[in-house]
Design a protein around this nucleic acid. Structure first.
Lengths: 232, 232
DNA sequence: ATTACTTAGTGTAAAATTTACACCCTATAT
DNA sequence: ATATAGGGTGTAAATTTTACACTAAGTAAT
C-alpha cells in the first residue's frame, strides 16, 4: 500500500461529447490538438480533473471553457481505464455526454492551451480521433441512441420553441432511420411533456407549423424513476 | 495515511457490488474495515487501481482476492468523484456490479489488510455503509433492477441447472414484487435462451421441477445490441 | 386569382404484446 | 390412502404498436 502510494502518478481526466444540432445536422464539438502526442489530430474536448472539483464540476468547466455555456445537463456514461490508452502515461478518463442549443452558444473559444481550434463536426463525417476517442464517441453516441427510445431527452438540442417535425427530424438523425409521422406525433404527445403554444413558425415558405415547448415540470412527473438518485 | 495522501494527486479506486443468492435471499459481499477512517464500519470491497492494470482488471483482482473467483463478468456502472467523498483525500472511484454463484465461491478470504472480515449481507438488511458506499450500492442495485426488465442478466447468480421457479423467485427478489407465474414462464421461454434439460430436481419433498440451463450462445444471438462495443 | 408546390396535420384497422386469471398434476410424507 | 406443496399449463381481454394516405394551409410564381 505504502509503496503504491509513493509510486502513484496516474492522472484523472474528463472527456466530453457535446452534441449540437445545426441545420438539421447532428454535430459534436471537437478540438484540434496542437501538442504531441497526436499533434494536429482531432480529439474530444477534455481536461484534467483538478483537486478541488468534482468530476461533474470538471465536465461543466470544460464545457464552459469551450462554449461559454454554464449549467448544462451532462451525463456521465463510462469510464475508460485501459493501461495504455494514453501513450505518455496512465490516464483514466470519465466520459460525459452533453447536449446544447447551438444558437445559444457564444462563439467557440478554445482556451485550453493544447488545442489550436474547436469546431463542430457532423456526426456522420466523424474521422478517426486521437487516443481512444473514437471508441469513446461510439459508446457515448450509442448510449444516447438507446436512451431516447425509452425517454425523451433531446430537447436541449432544439430551440426553445420547436415544431413536431423538427423534433421528429432530430430523432431520425439520431436513430438513423425514418419514423412514421403519425405514430411519432401520437406517441410524443401522449408523453404529455410538451406545451402547445399559440404560435406558429415564421419565415417559412410553406404552411407554418405549430410551435411547442418542452415542459420540464411535466417531464419530471413522468420520468421520476431516472431521478431517484442524486448526482455523484 | 492522511499525510501520505496530501502529497499526491487524486487516487483511483474500484468498489465492487458483488451479488450472490443464498437460500432465495439476495446478498452482497461486504467487508468490515479495521482501519480509520470508518474503522469497524461495513463497506463495499474495493481497492486502489495499480499502475499496470486496467480498471477492469483491478475489479477482477479485487473479486479474486476476496472470493477466489476469476473471470467473472463485471460491469462498470458509475464513477463517483465528489471532492470530499473520502475524508482523508481525493479518491475517485469506479463502481462495478458483479454476480457470482455462491456455491462456487471458495471460502471468503479477505486478503486486503484494511479489512478484518468479509461476509454476505442480505440486501434487504443493508446497513449504513462507510464513505458514500450506501449511495454507490443504491445506484448499482437500481441499475441491475432496471436492466433485468429489458434483458435477462441474472443467470450467474443461479446454479448451472435451475428451475423456472428459482429463476422467477430471483426476479421477484430483485424487483421486489410478485410476478405472475404463467406470464413469467411464457416470457422467459420466449427469449429462447434456455436449454430444457432431461433432468429434474432431486431431494425435494414435492413434485420435482424440470431443470434448465442458460445458453450463452443463444443469448448472444438475441442480445447483440448490448455487445456492440468492446470492453474499456 | 389561378395554379403549383411544399409541408402540416389527422384516424383507423390489423397485428402484436401484455395482462389477468384458476385448476389439475405429480412426487413426497405420513 | 390421503394430505401437502409446489409444478405446470391456456385463453380471453386489454393495451400497445404498427401500417398506411389523404386533405389543409400557406407561399410563390405566373
Amino acid at each position: 500500500m505504502e509503496k503504491l502510494l509513493q509510486n502513484f502518478d496516474s492522472i484523472f481526466s474528463i472527456d466530453c461529447i457535446i452534441f449540437g444540432l445545426n441545420e438539421g445536422e447532428l454535430k459534436i464539438l471537437l478540438i484540434e490538438r496542437n501538442e504531441d502526442p497526436y499533434k494536429s489530430w482531432y480529439a474530444l474536448p477534455g481536461n484534467i480533473v483538478e483537486q478541488n472539483e468534482s468530476i461533474d464540476d470538471a465536465a461543466q468547466r470544460i464545457l464552459y471553457e469551450l462554449t461559454g455555456l454554464k449549467d448544462i445537463y451532462m451525463e456521465q456514461f463510462y469510464t475508460f481505464g485501459a493501461v495504455k490508452r494514453h501513450p505518455s502515461g496512465r490516464v483514466i478518463t470519465v466520459a460525459y455526454n452533453a447536449m446544447i442549443r447551438l444558437d445559444s452558444a457564444k462563439e467557440l473559444k478554445p482556451v485550453t492551451n493544447y488545442a489550436s481550434k474547436a469546431f463542430w463536426m457532423p456526426v456522420k463525417d466523424m474521422p478517426e480521433l486521437a487516443f481512444d476517442h473514437t471508441q469513446i464517441f461510439n459508446k457515448g453516441f450509442e448510449k444516447i441512441r438507446s436512451k431516447i427510445s425509452f425517454e425523451p431527452i433531446v430537447f436541449e438540442l432544439l430551440p426553445e420553441k420547436f415544431t413536431l417535425s423538427q423534433l421528429q427530424n432530430l430523432y431520425e438523425v439520431i436513430l438513423n432511420k425514418e419514423l412514421d409521422k403519425r405514430n411519432f406525433r401520437k406517441k410524443m404527445l401522449a408523453y404529455n411533456i410538451l406545451n402547445e403554444l399559440n404560435e406558429k413558425q415564421e419565415g417559412v415558405s410553406f404552411r407554418a407549423a405549430k410551435l411547442y415547448s418542452f415542459d420540464k415540470h411535466k417531464y419530471d412527473k413522468f420520468f421520476q424513476k431516472e431521478l431517484s438518485f442524486g448526482k455523484d
